[in-house]
Amino acid sequence: MFTLATWNINSVRLREGLVAKLMADEGPDVLCLQECKSPVDKIPVDTFQSLGYTHMVARGQKGYNGVAIISKLPLEEVGARDFATLGHARHVAARLPNGVVIHNCYVPAGGDIPDRTQNEKFGQKLDFLTEMRDHFFAERPMRSILVGDLNIAPREDDVWSHKALLKIVSHTPVEVEHLAQVQDAGDWVDVTRADIPQGLLYSWWSYRAADWDAADKGRRLDHIWATRDIAAAGHASRILRPCRGWEQPSDHVPVFASFDL
Score class of each variant (00 low, 15 high):
residue 1 M to T: 12
residue 1 M to Q: 04
residue 3 T to H: 04
residue 6 T to G: 06
residue 6 T to M: 07
residue 8 N to S: 07
residue 9 I to H: 00
residue 11 S to R: 02
residue 14 L to S: 09
residue 15 R to H: 06
residue 16 E to V: 13
residue 16 E to Q: 09
residue 20 A to Y: 04
residue 21 K to D: 13
residue 21 K to A: 07
residue 23 M to P: 01
residue 24 A to H: 07
residue 24 A to C: 05
residue 24 A to T: 14
residue 26 E to Q: 03
residue 31 L to Q: 03
residue 31 L to T: 00
residue 31 L to A: 03
residue 34 Q to I: 11
residue 34 Q to G: 03
residue 35 E to N: 06
residue 36 C to S: 12
residue 40 V to W: 08
residue 41 D to G: 05
residue 41 D to Q: 14
residue 42 K to E: 10
residue 45 V to H: 03
residue 46 D to C: 05
residue 47 T to P: 01
residue 48 F to Y: 15
residue 52 G to L: 11
residue 60 G to K: 07
residue 61 Q to K: 13
residue 61 Q to L: 03
residue 61 Q to A: 03
residue 63 G to Y: 06
residue 64 Y to C: 00
residue 64 Y to V: 10
residue 66 G to W: 04
residue 66 G to Q: 01
residue 69 I to T: 04
residue 71 S to D: 01
residue 75 L to P: 06
residue 80 A to P: 00
residue 80 A to D: 09
residue 81 R to Y: 14
residue 84 A to Q: 05
residue 91 H to V: 10
residue 91 H to C: 08
residue 92 V to D: 11
residue 92 V to I: 13
residue 92 V to A: 06
residue 94 A to Q: 01
residue 95 R to L: 08
residue 98 N to R: 12
residue 98 N to P: 04
residue 98 N to C: 15
residue 99 G to F: 08
residue 100 V to T: 14
residue 103 H to V: 05
residue 111 G to K: 09
residue 113 I to L: 14
residue 117 T to C: 03
residue 119 N to G: 02
residue 126 L to A: 01
residue 127 D to F: 03
residue 128 F to S: 04
residue 130 T to C: 12
residue 131 E to D: 13
residue 132 M to N: 02
residue 133 R to T: 06
residue 134 D to S: 10
residue 136 F to P: 00
residue 136 F to S: 06
residue 140 R to D: 14
residue 142 M to H: 12
residue 145 I to R: 03
residue 145 I to L: 10
residue 148 G to N: 10
residue 149 D to W: 12
residue 151 N to Q: 14
residue 151 N to T: 08
residue 152 I to Y: 03
residue 155 R to P: 04
residue 155 R to E: 15
residue 156 E to Y: 09
residue 159 V to R: 11
residue 160 W to K: 03
residue 160 W to E: 09
residue 161 S to P: 07
residue 162 H to S: 14
residue 163 K to A: 15
residue 166 L to V: 10
residue 169 V to I: 04
residue 174 V to W: 03
residue 176 V to S: 05
residue 178 H to K: 04
residue 180 A to G: 11
residue 181 Q to H: 13
residue 183 Q to H: 06
residue 185 A to Y: 01
residue 190 D to H: 08
residue 192 T to W: 11
residue 194 A to F: 11
residue 197 P to A: 14
residue 198 Q to E: 13
residue 204 W to S: 08
residue 205 W to F: 07
residue 205 W to L: 07
residue 207 Y to L: 02
residue 209 A to P: 00
residue 211 D to L: 13
residue 214 A to Q: 12
residue 214 A to V: 14
residue 217 K to M: 11
residue 218 G to Q: 00
residue 219 R to G: 05
residue 219 R to H: 07
residue 219 R to K: 09
residue 220 R to M: 13
residue 220 R to N: 08
residue 220 R to Y: 12
residue 221 L to H: 00
residue 222 D to Q: 10
residue 223 H to F: 02
residue 225 W to T: 10
residue 226 A to W: 01
residue 226 A to N: 05
residue 228 R to K: 04
residue 233 A to K: 07
residue 233 A to E: 10
residue 234 G to A: 15
residue 236 A to E: 15
residue 240 L to H: 15
residue 242 P to V: 13
residue 244 R to F: 15
residue 245 G to M: 06
residue 246 W to D: 09
residue 247 E to P: 02
residue 250 S to H: 08
residue 254 P to G: 11
residue 255 V to A: 15
residue 255 V to H: 15
residue 257 A to T: 09
residue 257 A to L: 07
residue 259 F to T: 10
residue 261 L to F: 14
